[in-house]
């Protein structure tokens, strides 16, 4: 299925809308109830600008984007740094997270995808990379 992916190819950017309710849903689904992801009071007490998305929530969006791009190819490796927080305001609009990807390498049966994940003008993940089996 991933045979059509070729080195150098740009993958269509996927945009995800993120609101507070999405963080609550993710907290329940993942079991990560760290209050910095739902309480402004606690988040600001540790120096954050307010409630921020779970890094693993953002990484989950990356995994989703990779799944769509590759027709759900088997993932062999997935990694990133969480370089900037994704603050999510307590309103109906929330924020948008954009996930862009490029096929870095397609060698043998392994395909390496490098990504750029941004919220507004800020790059929120460092060196996000996925390796899938083609």
């Amino acid at each position: 299925m991933t045979g059509r992916l070729q080195a150098g190819q740009s993958l269509p950017t996927q945009v995800f809308s993120v609101r507070r309710a999405d963080l609550i849903r993710y907290a329940g689904a993942s079991g990560d109830f760290n209050p910095i992801h739902w309480s402004d009071r606690v988040a600001t007490s540790v120096g954050l600008p307010g409630v921020i998305a779970h890094g693993m929530f953002t990484m989950g969006l990356v995994a989703r984007a990779v799944e769509v791009w590759t027709d759900a190819a088997e993932v062999v490796e997935l990694g990133c740094r969480f370089t900037n927080p994704v603050p999510v305001p307590d309103d109906e609009v929330g924020v948008e997270v954009s996930v862009a990807g490029t096929v870095k390498e397609a060698a043998g049966d392994l395909i390496t995808i490098t990504l750029e994940v941004t919220c507004g003008a800020v790059r929120v993940l460092g060196m996000p990379k996925a390796v899938v089996r083609g």
Binding site: G55, V76, E77, F82, G126
Partner: peptide
């Protein structure tokens, strides 16, 4: 989900408050 079970147990054992933790990086090898 499973890795966090281990992490929470570790933080609890060491008396580290979860709200003082921020995730720096994460890598999975499957």
């Amino acid at each position: 989900v499973v890795a966090f079970d281990a992490m929470f147990a570790f933080l609890d054992a060491e008396g580290i408050d979860l709200f003082r933790i921020v995730h720096g990086d994460q890598k999975f090898t499957y």
